[in-house]
Amino acid sequence: MARSRRHMQVASRPTPAPSGRPMVFARRNYVLLLVGIALVVIGFAIMAIEHELDGFWSRTVAPIVIVGGYLEVVYAILWRPRAAADQ
């Protein structure tokens, strides 16, 4: 008793976006985004490395670095290149 293949459909692969479409972000956006993510990771690493609860690095420096990294990520998402002025 074989099943009928008539009702089985093969999922097609999604087609790639046309190459003429512009990218969502410019290269600078991606660089800024990576810098922001690196700052967040460094901030959490600073916080984890120092095992003291009231230490200067884990209580003061690390949160400032983490907030700076998050602000950098937001800036990277919102940054838009200026349009070229037609002269």
Rank of each mutant, 00 (worst) to 15 (best):
R13C: 06
Y30T: 04
I42E: 00
A26C: 01
E50V: 13
P14F: 09
A83N: 02
A11V: 05
V31R: 10
L53M: 13
Q87V: 11
F25V: 08
P18N: 07
Q87W: 09
D54F: 11
R27Q: 12
L39C: 15
I37W: 00
L33N: 05
A45S: 06
W79T: 04
G55E: 13
P81S: 03
R13P: 02
R3Q: 02
N29S: 06
M1C: 02
D54E: 11
A45Q: 08
I77R: 00
W57V: 15
G55F: 05
W57E: 06
A62Q: 07
R28A: 09
V74K: 02
E50H: 12
P18K: 14
M47E: 15
R59C: 11
V24F: 14
G20F: 12
V73K: 00
S19E: 10
L78F: 05
I66M: 12
W79E: 08
F44R: 02
V35A: 13
I37R: 00
A2L: 13
V10W: 06
G68W: 02
A17T: 05
G69L: 10
Q87E: 13
Y70R: 01
Q9P: 04
V61Y: 08
V40G: 01
A76E: 11
P63D: 13
D54P: 00
V74T: 14
G69E: 06
R27G: 14
I37A: 13
G69M: 13
S4I: 05
T60P: 00
V67Y: 06
Q87L: 15
D86A: 15
P14C: 11
E72T: 15
I42C: 04
I49W: 11
S12H: 09
D54A: 10
I49P: 01
L78I: 07
L78T: 12
I37F: 01
G69Q: 08
W79S: 06
A26F: 00
L34I: 02
A45Y: 03
R80H: 09
A17M: 08
Y75N: 04
P81N: 07
M1S: 12
R6W: 05
M23K: 12
V61Q: 07
I46K: 05
A85K: 15
V41R: 03
S4V: 14
F44Y: 14
A76I: 09
P16H: 09
R21A: 12
F25L: 13
